[in-house]
Nucleic acid binder design. Sequence first.
DNA 1: CCTACCGATCGGTAGG
DNA 2: CCTACCGATCGGTAGG
Lengths: 202, 202
Amino acid sequence: MPRTPDAETTPLKTRREQIYEVAGQLFSERGYHGTSMRDLAARLGIQGGSLYAHIASKEELLVELVERAAHQFDEALFSLSAADLPPEAKLREAMRRHLEVVAQNMDSATVFFHEWKHLSPPAYQRVTAWRDTIDHFYRELIQEGIRSGDFRADLDVKMSAYLVLSAVNWAYTWYRPGGSLTPGQVVDQFGQMLLDGLRSQP
Amino acid sequence: MPRTPDAETTPLKTRREQIYEVAGQLFSERGYHGTSMRDLAARLGIQGGSLYAHIASKEELLVELVERAAHQFDEALFSLSAADLPPEAKLREAMRRHLEVVAQNMDSATVFFHEWKHLSPPAYQRVTAWRDTIDHFYRELIQEGIRSGDFRADLDVKMSAYLVLSAVNWAYTWYRPGGSLTPGQVVDQFGQMLLDGLRSQP
DNA sequence: CCTACCGATCGGTAGG
DNA sequence: CCTACCGATCGGTAGG
């Protein structure tokens, strides 16, 4: 059995990826409901109906794009959970990875942040659970730092996690890949501001 | 001349406001393109076509909602520009007002952040200009604090402003009015974390 | 504010 | 991957 019955041939897989890529661009620019399948097909130089030779439905595109983004965040952070790093370094590293996912996938990140609400229930719930996992990761990280004495004892864990997440997530609105700042440089700055504060030391 | 010719009667004005309010809810939940005029009418208990006795078009709703939100941010912050407050207090107060606008208008804020891209050119440009004004306000505020010596001299003004804006803007994704935290309490925490940092002092 | 309707466009399919 | 088409729904209007 050299092939599974539903194995896709190489050109098909490539086309599929092209579709996802362009869908990511359009969904992030115009939104899911603001993008028609004919818009998408036109960008690929084919007819609207031809898309369905490669994908099952418009919703499949959204599901796939959002879940891929969620998976990337998950993958970037999960391997850090058990890492044996001091809390500060771990926080910086988490922020760096998180921001890299945003920076290297600006379209998918935008779709992830804006369009997940339009998913139908099963995918919607999976994505919500994923977001909770990310929240939980940052809360654990802060908690560790408080326990170890590296972070201030009077921090509210939930609020600190929100603050860190704000910084790395909101970047999808202003960061421009290819601009003057690498994700690493952004995190160096954000990391220092968050850890040491904006106030000048007396 | 007791009335201007196009003065609206009271019941009309009220209905208009109802329409904007419900449109804000629907646009924030389902997006602009994900909401049909018939959805909107149904929520108001009228027929789709009847909406056009009160408004000119769907786009008018979006323009009005986004510009109202922009105007609220503008109004909340503008009066602070010339205020004679120490930089720290000014930053806290700006964040408090900013977050109050978000908190008291979760729907409009969500529409403002998500749907402004769908505006047609004239309104799009006005809103973009407004956003720049807000950015500029925060940068000026940080700049003042650096000059006065209250904020660290090595801060990157642009990045610090992004960090502050991240904190207050991202709240539209997680803040729940009527929950356990008032905007003031959120800002007390965010303000302290941003000013003093997460790290425990040696 | 309703009924009845307009042309346009939507996601998706059949058959090739 | 195309042509040709489906029923449904879209924003909006006319006339009352």
